[in-house]
Amino acid sequence: MPLHPDIAQVLAALPAPPPGPLNPEAMRAGEESQVPPVAERLPLHSVEDAMAGEVPVRVYTPVEAAAYGLLIYFHGGAFFLGSLETHDHVARALAKETGLKVVSVGYRLAPEDAFPAGLEDCHAAVRWAAANGETLGWDGTTLAVAGDSSGGTFAAAVAAMAHDEGFGRITHQVLLYPSLDLDFDVDRYASLRENAAGYGLETAGLKPFNAFYLDGGADPADPLVSPIKRADLTGLPPALIVTAECDPLRDEGEQYGRRLTEAGVEATVSRYEGANHGFVANFSWIPAYHRVFEETAAFLKGRS
């Protein structure tokens, strides 16, 4: 199936990237400039900024209720982009469709804060949520981790860290077109060649975009950097892995799902046809892709 026509139209209208090396500060400013004002965002019962220890978080309460399940969300952005603001719309949609209280994590970014700073922040936020369940109104059931792209890396890694520590409270992991193998050898997965160019994220851009993270000491051979390299996946939480047909990272996500299943972990892999990398954050206004939030809700409610 070709790229969805609405996505193709948007990509065709994008200006060429500026020449020269990537500029994190300029790219972040460009992202932030596209964030709509609060008055134009999806309304919820409440949206509040807080601190999970030293980590900034934003707490989304969908409706007034006595108690809630919790979803801890890690935004994407190749470990150096993204923020509570740029992914505010994703967190709002997750809260509305799942009915869970969502805690979005403003983790530290590369290159200013080297590995494992961002991962440690995500891990700390999950621990904080569990320890402060009474304040958050947690009902003691669902405690899910979710992330898109590099946020999916962190979600998978945090789930593994929790398992290894004997912290058994994480009930689900939701990985949206996750980056699970930071070894970008183009022969590792067919999708790296099939979707190499013309779909937004390009295979040739993977190394430079992730260089800020890798150059700061994140070793692609480390399973906390590349979760697919973890040898033993047994005992991890049930997973929903959403992939995009036209994404260079498609095959590593789907392979991770197969490996989880082989390890006895309940894993659902859901490929969205005609979609590209980032479609949840960028194109969920298309009805066929907004369905990802409904699918996430069904997955979480089915395993509470």
Rank of each mutant, 00 (worst) to 15 (best):
A8H: 05
V10H: 10
V10F: 08
L11T: 03
L11R: 04
A16W: 00
P19Y: 00
A26Y: 05
A26R: 14
A26P: 03
G30H: 09
E32D: 12
P36C: 10
V38E: 15
A39R: 13
R41F: 09
P43F: 12
H45P: 02
S46R: 15
V47Y: 10
D49K: 09
M51S: 15
A52D: 13
G53Q: 09
E54H: 13
A66V: 15
A67L: 03
G69E: 01
G69W: 00
G69A: 00
L70E: 01
L71V: 15
L71I: 11
I72E: 14
A78D: 07
F80V: 06
F80R: 07
L81D: 09
L81H: 08
S83Y: 04
H87P: 05
V90E: 09
A91D: 11
K96T: 05
V102K: 04
G106Q: 00
G106K: 00
Y107P: 02
R108T: 01
L109F: 01
A110M: 08
E112C: 02
A114S: 13
A117H: 11
A117N: 12
G118C: 06
E120H: 08
E120W: 02
D121Y: 06
A125M: 05
A130S: 13
N132G: 11
N132L: 14
G137N: 12
W138E: 07
D148L: 07
S149V: 02
F154A: 05
A159N: 01
A159V: 02
A160I: 05
E165G: 03
I170F: 03
I170E: 05
Y177K: 06
L180N: 12
L182G: 07
L182D: 05
Y189L: 07
S191R: 06
L192D: 03
E202R: 10
E202V: 10
G205H: 14
G205T: 04
L206N: 02
K207R: 13
K207C: 02
F209N: 13
N210A: 07
F212K: 01
Y213Q: 03
L214C: 05
L214M: 13
D215M: 08
D219N: 14
D219A: 06
D219R: 04
D222C: 07
P223T: 10
P223Q: 10
T234W: 02
G235W: 00
P238G: 12
I241D: 04
E245I: 01
D247I: 12
P248H: 02
D251M: 07
Q255E: 15
Q255A: 12
G257I: 10
R258A: 11
L260F: 12
T261Q: 14
A263I: 08
G264N: 05
G264V: 08
E266T: 15
G274L: 01
A275H: 03
N276Q: 06
G278I: 03
F283Q: 08
F283W: 12
I286V: 08
Y289Q: 04
H290T: 07
F299Y: 04
L300F: 09
G302I: 04
G302M: 06
R303H: 15
